[in-house]
Structures are given as structure tokens and as C-alpha cells.
């Protein structure tokens, strides 16, 4: 064997907290090549890595569907839970009750959220459960092979030619009306915007709902589908150009005053919205609802941060929990003393 001196290894690329990208990645995807859901997983990996969040502080939750499989494909060092169809809100709420320090990220499908689990979805909205809730919206049930979902637009066509005659459910409208405190829409193919939105969601204190149009290449990416790549590319109108400045970075002014709007998020991060063709105030609920309805009438897909509300209490605030996670409180903190039981017994005598 010849003696070759190995070159010194190139320094590994790490993030803010010294972790490589590997623990942010997951298992190899088993979804169809080109599925919008895969792009969203990639963004999630990227965003958590860039923000430098310890993966083990995250709980990755999902329901059932192609979309709900994806938590296996990111953050391998975070606990994940592929639960039951449409019930990720309940399971996630429970997990956060047990451990309020967990960062919840929930991935669901439009079948999960707008059909079987719509009851859980709207009640999670009312409760303002502090987590990031992603709807990978393809207008169909991918995993059961392409039936229409309740978010399919009126007039959109199934591969077999069947036309949807019914009114779609817009999860962003529901989100704004019923209590989510950050509501956004994006497109799986819009890398930059989706990353920025996800970062804002993760920094938000409260429930962040993101409806991501995520084409199903196998069952819903054809002519006549309003959730296909080509349709969304042609009809997407972004509300604003978004940039996100994490709390640990200095803000650099690179946009002209008057053209931008700054939203400070709970952890001190900034969300900078650059006005495009309209002056949009995402803290104004009525304007948000109005803009979504107008876009719908024009057949447009309005993307961006649609709504932010920063003051409302989350479920965990309302419960006024002790500082430590309930799950691991020691027995002395959760079992009242002997005298307490004696007193109650005496009262019942």
C-alpha cells in the first residue's frame, strides 16, 4: 500500500448551534417524484437548520395521507407521530399540554384538515394552540388515489374527467375567522416565499396556519386542475415580497421606507413585507378576508402572510400552567399531601 497523505478534511458546514444539516434531514422520501409535498419537506429541513433550532425540541405531528407521511422525511432527531386521519390537532394539543416547551409542527393534508378532521381543525383554531400547522393542499386525496377533497375548486377536473361542482373550503378563511393568529398561503414551488413564511410561523407565538398549494403529480397535475403546477404558476399573485430577519441577526435596511411594513414577531424576529401592487396590512382582519375573497373571484391564488395577530393568549397561556412541563413534574408536585386527603375524608364523614 502506498502511503498517501490524506488532505485535511474540509471543515464541515454547520449552523448557528454547531449542527450539521444531517440531523435536520429525515429518511428517504417514499412519495412520488415531483410531488409538491417533497418540496415542502425540503423547506422544513432548510428552515430549521437555518434558524438553528435543536431538532429534539420539536414534535413532528401528522394525520394520515401522503402529506402526513412526510414528517418521517425531515428532522430525524425529533420525535414524530403519524397519528390517525384528521386527528393531528388533538394529538398535538395533547402533546403540548404535556410539555409546553415542545415546538409543534404539524403536517396534514387537505383531506385531513378540510374533511374528516375539520371539527378538530376549527376547535384548534379557537383554542389558538401554539404550533405551526401546515396543510399540504393538493385538492385531492393522494393516498387513496385521487378522489376530490373539499378544497378542490369549483369547476376543477379530476383526471377521469369528473368535474367538482361544490364550493371549496378555504382553510385560510377559516383560520382568520376562527382564531388562528398567523395565517399564510404559499406554493410548494415557491422556495423563497415558503421558507420565509415557515420561519415566521416558527417564530410566532400562537397558532400559525399555512395553506401550501402542493400539486399531486400523480392524480391532480393535469389540464383543468386548479391545483396543478402550471395553474398555480400562472395564477399566483403574491401580496408582498417577504423577508425574514431572525432575532439574532441585525436588521439591515434594504428596502425603501414607505414601501415596507415591519412586523415584529414574539421572539424578536422581524418579518418585512414589501409592498407589491397594493398596500396590504396583515394585521387587519377585514382587509385580509376581503383580499382573499377578491382573489378567489378573479381565479387568483393569493399568497403571502395573509394575517397576523400578536396579542391573543394561546391555550397554554389560558391554562396558566406551572413553568416546567407537566409530563415530568416530580411526585411531590403532583400528589397533594396526606393532610389534604385527611381533610377531605373528614368533610365526607
Amino acid at each position: 500500500m502506498s502511503t498517501v497523505v490524506a488532505p485535511p478534511p474540509a471543515p464541515k458546514k454547520v449552523n448557528r448551534i454547531g449542527l450539521e444539516v444531517l440531523p435536520y434531514r429525515g429518511a428517504k422520501t417514499t412519495l412520488c417524484a415531483g410531488c409538491g409535498h417533497n418540496s415542502i419537506s425540503e423547506r422544513i429541513v432548510e428552515v430549521f437548520y437555518e434558524l438553528g433550532i435543536e431538532p429534539w425540541t420539536v414534535a413532528k405531528m401528522s394525520g394520515i395521507g401522503c402529506s402526513s407521511k412526510t414528517p418521517a422525511y425531515f428532522l430525524s432527531q425529533a420525535h414524530g407521530f403519524n397519528s390517525v386521519h384528521g386527528r393531528a390537532p388533538a394529538v398535538s394539543t395533547g402533546a403540548l399540554l404535556a410539555n409546553k416547551n415542545l415546538r409543534g409542527i404539524v403536517v396534514t393534508g387537505d383531506g385531513d384538515t378540510a374533511s374528516i378532521g375539520i371539527g378538530q381543525f376549527v376547535h384548534m383554531l379557537r383554542r389558538n394552540v401554539p404550533l405551526t400547522y401546515i396543510i399540504e393542499n393538493n385538492g385531492v386525496y393522494g393516498l387513496t388515489k385521487g378522489q376530490f377533497s373539499a378544497t378542490a375548486d369549483r369547476g376543477s377536473k379530476q383526471k377521469s374527467g369528473v368535474i367538482n361542482d361544490m364550493q371549496p373550503i378555504d382553510c385560510c378563511l377559516l383560520g382568520i375567522e376562527l382564531g388562528a393568529t398567523l395565517v399564510a398561503r404559499s406554493f410548494s414551488g415557491d422556495k423563497k416565499q415558503l421558507s420565509t413564511i415557515l420561519k415566521a410561523c416558527i417564530s410566532h407565538k400562537g397558532l400559525a396556519v399555512v395553506d401550501v398549494i402542493s400539486p399531486c403529480v400523480t392524480f391532480n397535475d393535469h389540464e383543468g386542475s386548479t391545483k396543478s403546477y402550471s395553474y398555480v404558476k400562472d395564477h399566483e399573485t403574491a401580496l408582498h415580497e417577504l423577508s425574514y430577519v431572525p432575532y439574532y441577526e441585525e436588521i439591515q435596511i434594504d428596502m425603501a421606507e414607505g414601501e415596507t411594513r415591519d412586523v415584529t414577531l414574539h421572539d424578536g424576529s422581524h418579518l418585512r413585507l414589501k409592498k407589491l401592487d397594493r398596500d396590504y396590512d396583515p394585521t387587519n382582519k377585514y382587509e385580509a378576508l376581503n383580499a382573499i375573497h377578491q382573489a378567489e373571484d378573479k381565479g387568483e391564488v393569493l399568497t403571502g402572510i395573509l394575517y397576523v395577530e400578536q396579542k391573543r393568549d394561546t391555550l397554554l397561556d389560558m391554562l396558566n400552567l406551572v413553568d416546567e412541563p407537566l409530563a415530568t413534574l416530580p411526585v411531590e408536585r403532583v400528589r397533594p399531601g396526606r393532610e389534604a386527603l385527611d381533610m377531605i375524608m373528614e368533610e365526607l364523614r
Binding site: 414534535a59 405531528m61 407521530f81 397519528s83 388533538a90 394529538v91 398535538s92 394539543t93 395533547g94 402533546a95 403540548l96 399540554l97 404535556a98 410539555n99 415542545l102 412541563p325 407537566l326 409530563a327 415530568t328
Partner: peptide
Amino acid sequence: IGASWAGA
């Protein structure tokens, strides 16, 4: 189920 999974 979610809470017990997380240890409560």
C-alpha cells in the same frame, strides 16, 4: 394519547 405520548 398525545399528552401520554409526551409523558404526562
